[in-house]
Amino acid sequence: MPDDKKAELIVSRQVLSIPQRFATGPIMGRFLAELLDNRRIMAVRAPGSRCLLPPREVDAVTMQEAVEWVEVGPEGTIRDFDVVYYASPDPLTGETRDVPYIICWVDLDGAGEGAPLWHLLDAPDPGKVRCGMRVRAVFNDERCGCMEDIRHFEIIEET
């Protein structure tokens, strides 16, 4: 066998994709329906426990079912945030987002401190974002019953 052929190393490049049907179950289902129908952010909690947001079936700390619904937000306080400079593909769409963008953890009013909501923050100057800033959820006009029905959070300008 000629040597030049030995050198070729074969690679197979492909996008692997499997269509999925993700069930919401009753709890996430109600959370998403409230975003869709009422622009309301709803958390759940087990009796006497912290809020869970996004809502989940069970409070991992108490191992009790989260059965009480609590309306929270749409305003809240930035607990933490990240300014992202690294572009990566969204594995649900394969699309890559423009950078920089900001992701934030928001303690929504009424949710207490155990359940910051994880979302995007729209701020004109990432350098001026600080923990503790007040923010508000901005809903899309066209909604589909998904987390992205909240387009992002925006900073409430101090007056």
Partner: peptide, 12 residues
């Protein structure tokens, strides 16, 4: 097709 429950719900 347990369309009405997440995997977490099945396990719980």
């Amino acid at each position: 097709d347990k369309w009405d429950v997440r995997m977490q719900g099945m396990v719980w």
